[in-house]
Simulated assay, not measured.
Amino acid sequence: MNEIKESLRNIEQTYKIFQQQQFTFITALEHTRENAHDKIKPVSSIGQVQTYTDHYCNNSTDKRILLLFLSICSDLNKLCQRLESLHPGNSVTNALLDKCKTLVSHSNDLSGIRAKYPHDVVNHLSCDEARNHYGGVVSLIPIVLDSMKEWVAHTEKLPRNMLHSVSARKAAVYNQAEQPIRRVGDRDHLGRPAFITEGTQTYISLTEKAREREDRRVKLKQLGGLGRAIRKFLDGPWRPPGKHAF
């Protein structure tokens, strides 16, 4: 959670730099929209800004501020993925996260959103035309940041045992179900590898077990043969099938 909050603070600091250059951002959008002959419709999506930047921006100052906007949106999108992996969530946190994921989607229509008090980004737009065309795009980042901070506040109230990585929790459940493991040389009456319980093993943390299982899956795929994969990753004395087999 501390890493999440640190990432959020870093994005906020970058946004403060961007916010100080809002007039430059609007000017850049004006220039690129004019080059694209697209001055009637509002700027309604991140993808639209990306298109202007890639194909209709011929000014280094314009490109710099547009890329800064896109970079912040990209960081917010990545942070959404990290939030999703932190814990399974509840109805409140899931609703907040879904809202953030929708807002930072490249194709999502932003034209109807407006950041409200204490944010004054819309009020800084110079005229009604600018507000009608750019109110949504300038409101995007502050709204998402507010929702993410609300997500953090709700998540910190959850029981500590819910704050495990989702992938680690899934790996733990899978590992528990797979307590009987295969040993090299063990075969059942059909010639298939038999399952036996593991006698003793060194304690490994939940995260390390999840990582070990993922490494095993990747290397198993690379090796191609189940026997070779088992030989590479499983140790311990060979035990014959029979009463120990499952």
Rank of each mutant, 00 (worst) to 15 (best):
K16T: 15
Q19P: 00
T24K: 13
I26G: 02
A28N: 11
R33L: 07
A36G: 04
P42D: 08
V43N: 01
V43F: 02
T53S: 09
N59K: 04
T61S: 14
T61H: 11
C73A: 15
D75R: 09
C80R: 00
R82W: 00
P88D: 01
N90R: 02
S91N: 05
L97F: 04
K99H: 11
K99R: 10
C100E: 01
L103R: 09
S105W: 04
H106Q: 07
H106I: 05
K116E: 14
K116H: 13
N123T: 06
L125C: 12
D128K: 12
G136W: 09
S139V: 07
D146Q: 10
M148Q: 10
V152Q: 02
V152I: 11
K157C: 12
K157I: 12
P159F: 04
S165N: 05
N175K: 04
P180W: 07
P180S: 06
H189Y: 06
P193E: 05
P193F: 09
G199D: 10
Q201W: 02
Q201G: 01
T202K: 11
L206R: 10
E214V: 05
D215C: 06
K221I: 08
Q222I: 07
Q222T: 05
G224F: 05
L226H: 12
R228K: 14
I230M: 13
G236S: 04
R239F: 02
G242H: 09
G242F: 13
F246T: 15
